[in-house]
Amino acid sequence: MARPNKKAPSRTVEIFCAQCKTRLFKYRKGGKGALVKCFKERIVEDDTHTPCHCPNCEQCFARDTLIRGVPAFKIIGGKATMK
């Protein structure tokens, strides 16, 4: 399987907790589709204290996994939003 692009996308989006609206990440997202996964190497700013958990409400919003051999967070449907 192919690895993600070496050159990071230029568009940044902010990712928020869907329950309490706390900012979780500032992320370099490629494409215009829904937020399904976040590659760790593309995270610009990380506001979480423990991985995959909201710092405010402690809700688990993602799972730590490997996607195409690269560390990533697999977003649980409906737990995180982006703007």
Results as ranks from 00 to 15, higher is better:
residue 2 A to T: 11
residue 3 R to H: 10
residue 3 R to A: 14
residue 3 R to K: 15
residue 4 P to I: 08
residue 6 K to C: 09
residue 7 K to F: 04
residue 8 A to N: 13
residue 9 P to R: 08
residue 10 S to D: 14
residue 10 S to P: 05
residue 11 R to N: 10
residue 12 T to C: 11
residue 14 E to F: 07
residue 14 E to V: 05
residue 15 I to P: 11
residue 16 F to D: 03
residue 17 C to E: 01
residue 18 A to N: 15
residue 19 Q to E: 14
residue 19 Q to V: 10
residue 20 C to T: 13
residue 21 K to G: 05
residue 21 K to S: 15
residue 22 T to A: 05
residue 22 T to H: 05
residue 23 R to N: 14
residue 23 R to I: 15
residue 24 L to K: 06
residue 26 K to M: 14
residue 26 K to I: 15
residue 27 Y to P: 09
residue 27 Y to H: 06
residue 27 Y to G: 06
residue 27 Y to R: 06
residue 29 K to E: 11
residue 29 K to D: 07
residue 29 K to T: 02
residue 30 G to D: 12
residue 31 G to F: 12
residue 32 K to D: 13
residue 32 K to L: 11
residue 32 K to Q: 13
residue 33 G to N: 03
residue 34 A to H: 10
residue 34 A to N: 13
residue 35 L to N: 08
residue 35 L to I: 07
residue 35 L to F: 06
residue 36 V to W: 03
residue 37 K to F: 03
residue 38 C to I: 15
residue 38 C to H: 05
residue 39 F to G: 07
residue 40 K to F: 03
residue 40 K to Y: 03
residue 40 K to T: 08
residue 40 K to W: 05
residue 41 E to V: 05
residue 42 R to G: 03
residue 43 I to S: 01
residue 43 I to A: 02
residue 44 V to P: 06
residue 45 E to G: 01
residue 45 E to F: 00
residue 45 E to S: 02
residue 46 D to F: 03
residue 46 D to E: 05
residue 46 D to I: 04
residue 48 T to S: 03
residue 48 T to C: 07
residue 48 T to R: 02
residue 49 H to W: 06
residue 49 H to R: 09
residue 49 H to C: 07
residue 50 T to D: 12
residue 51 P to N: 08
residue 51 P to S: 09
residue 51 P to A: 11
residue 51 P to I: 04
residue 54 C to G: 03
residue 54 C to N: 04
residue 55 P to N: 06
residue 55 P to H: 09
residue 55 P to L: 09
residue 56 N to S: 10
residue 56 N to R: 08
residue 57 C to T: 02
residue 57 C to G: 04
residue 57 C to I: 03
residue 58 E to G: 04
residue 59 Q to H: 01
residue 59 Q to A: 01
residue 59 Q to Y: 00
residue 59 Q to L: 01
residue 60 C to K: 11
residue 60 C to L: 11
residue 62 A to N: 07
residue 62 A to H: 09
residue 63 R to N: 11
residue 64 D to Y: 02
residue 65 T to V: 15
residue 65 T to Q: 11
residue 66 L to R: 13
residue 67 I to G: 05
residue 67 I to D: 10
residue 70 V to W: 00
residue 70 V to R: 02
residue 71 P to M: 09
residue 71 P to L: 12
residue 71 P to W: 06
residue 71 P to F: 08
residue 72 A to M: 08
residue 72 A to G: 06
residue 72 A to H: 05
residue 73 F to T: 00
residue 73 F to H: 02
residue 75 I to W: 00
residue 75 I to P: 00
residue 76 I to C: 07
residue 76 I to P: 03
residue 77 G to M: 11
residue 77 G to C: 12
residue 77 G to N: 15
residue 77 G to F: 08
residue 77 G to H: 14
residue 78 G to A: 13
residue 78 G to I: 11
residue 79 K to A: 00
residue 79 K to V: 00
residue 79 K to I: 00
residue 79 K to F: 01
residue 81 T to E: 14
residue 81 T to V: 14
residue 81 T to R: 12
residue 82 M to L: 14
residue 82 M to D: 13
residue 82 M to R: 12
residue 82 M to K: 15
residue 83 K to I: 13
residue 83 K to S: 15
